[in-house]
Amino acid sequence: MTNGSPENTASLLVGKVRFHWKEEVIRIALFLCAILSVATTLSIVVVLATEAFTFFENVSLGEFLLGGRWTPLLVPRSFGVLPLVCGTLLIVAGAALIALPVGLATAVYLGEYAPDRVRSIVKPVLEVLAGIPTVVYGYFALTFVTPLIRSIFPSTQIFNAASASIVVSIMVLPMVASLCDDSLRAVPLSLRQGAYALGATSFEVTTRVVVPASLSGVVASFVLALSRAIGETMAVTLAAGATPRMTINPLESIQTMTAYIVQVSLGDTPAGSVEYQTIFAVAALLFTITLMMNVIAHRVLRRFREVYE
């Protein structure tokens, strides 16, 4: 090919301007894929909002948010959501108590102490844990954890918050460990060396340099784990019971927001009735709470992110 002549160059350039219909089709297809998730999210929000709105035409927002009795399916009806919120919080608190420290400790162990061989075993195990369907956790709670708790505390009810808390903590543990591991790894080696060179032990380097330096990632992983625990449905429906109750005793049966939604969705409550609309109000509250948690997590990440070259 002889290039360099003016005509050749010109024709090459003219070719570039031609309309590439294939590219255009691909571009539009990709755009549609991208818009799909946005559209789905938006429509969920719209459905939630409108249904919840009709609910609040019948029940006041104040009664819903501040009421301490939740008996929408029984007469006399009462629409105070606090017992459900309390149930959810009880599960989340219990799960957090176990999963956050153990998750962080796992990450620290994997990142700072574990020999490569141990790491190569523990990491895949964590990934398998994360992949187990949540209904399996529910059965695990009922058939293994609950009998175990009852053998220690015989007064424990068959359905109880503790059992659900424990399996939810096992469920979110891999996420905490893996996100913490990522943020610990982001701390540059030079910082660790600087600390070791001052005569620090591994423990001091970890607790007083590495973890503080990756605090934003650690906190963000905590918040995300909590929001996952709040939204967890299957295991709590199976193991925690269906008794909306304001209690902090983990050995009692309770009901979480998610479990209530399952109960009504599967039950024979007529669609369109106020009883039925309660699930949208509860779902809207759930959505608001988890959304807020996620926003907080991202704020924390952005605000405290340490910039390393």
Binding site: S190, L191, Q193, G194, A195, L198, G199, A200, P212, E306
Partner: peptide, 30 residues
């Protein structure tokens, strides 16, 4: 103990992501 007696300064400055004061106080405090 060796590293307490024989300190090291690295090629690239590697201060901890803490305050100036805490950086200097870090070694003594641990």
């Amino acid at each position: 103990d060796v590293r307490r007696k024989i300190g090291m300064v690295f090629q690239k400055p590697n201060p901890f992501p803490k305050s100036i004061f805490s950086n200097v106080a870090w070694g003594p405090s641990i």
